[in-house]
């Protein structure tokens, strides 16, 4: 059942230029915004050493090109406004369609992406998203515990900066449109972070 770890480092060929252009644009944008919002984009997470490691995977097409940047960065919406289960459950959860419609029955209703969303809603049929971040089935990962450690039970941590904690494993999602996997999320990545931040090292804490 167990996928060999070398698959984790497989780098499938991809359209090279496109991504780097996007990246530099986003970086420029991020630099600009950080000037205006002090303590915003790249705030420090206290009492934590962010895990190291990078990953470069495939672009994942989605039924709707959801712009994380517009929501999380430009409009400054907290990650947990939509991924509301993260603080309570092992999964962060894709927001229910009703949540999207809570705003978008009024906002930006003329945009093609919103029209597509409205179509899904009216057909009583939620969109089928393609999963970007995944761990193997023998891994027990819980968002709730990690958020407790790094956000809610972390002295000096402002919940408004939660995206910096999310970024440990998900990268700077607020600089992306649809999410990309930019961290390896393999055992070495997890274990190094656990060692640096005092996480448990018992096998059965994370393996099921």
């Amino acid at each position: 059942m167990f996928v060999s770890e070398k698959n984790l480092f497989k780098r499938p060929g991809k359209k090279a230029g496109q991504r780097s252009v996007n990246k530099s644009l986003v970086l420029l944008f991020a630099l600009l915004t950080s000037v205006f919002f002090v303590g915003g984009a790249h705030a420090e997470v206290p009492n934590a050493t962010p895990p190291k490691g990078t990953h470069s995977g495939e672009d994942v097409p989605q039924p709707i090109d959801f712009p994380h940047d517009i929501h999380a960065d430009i409009n400054g919406i907290n990650c947990m406004y939509c991924h509301t289960y993260a603080r309570r459950s092992k999964v962060a959860g894709i927001p229910p369609t009703s949540k999207c419609m809570g705003c978008h029955s009024i906002i930006a209703t003329d945009k093609p992406r919103i029209q597509k969303l409205t179509e899904y809603w009216e057909n009583n049929e939620p969109p089928e998203w393609n999963k970007v971040h995944d761990v193997p089935d023998y891994v027990h990962f819980t968002h709730e515990k990690h958020l407790q450690r790094f956000v809610f039970n972390n002295e000096g941590m402002d919940v408004a900066n939660v995206s910096e904690v999310c970024a440990f494993c998900h990268g700077e999602v607020k600089e992306m449109t649809v999410a990309e996997k930019v961290k390896p999320l393999n055992m070495g990545f997890c274990v190094r972070c656990h060692e640096q931040n005092g996480g448990p090292s018992d096998c059965w804490k994370c393996h099921k």
Binding site: N7, E58, P95, P96, N130
Partner: peptide, 29 residues
């Protein structure tokens, strides 16, 4: 958790959200 569906490569599995869940319907619980 069927082993045949294991993939760590992004974009290989689907995830479908609730349309309009009740308060108690929390994925994972």
């Amino acid at each position: 958790d069927m082993p045949t569906t294991i993939t760590l490569e992004e974009g290989k599995e689907k995830v479908v959200a609730y349309l309009a869940p009740e308060e108690y319907a929390i994925p994972g619980i």
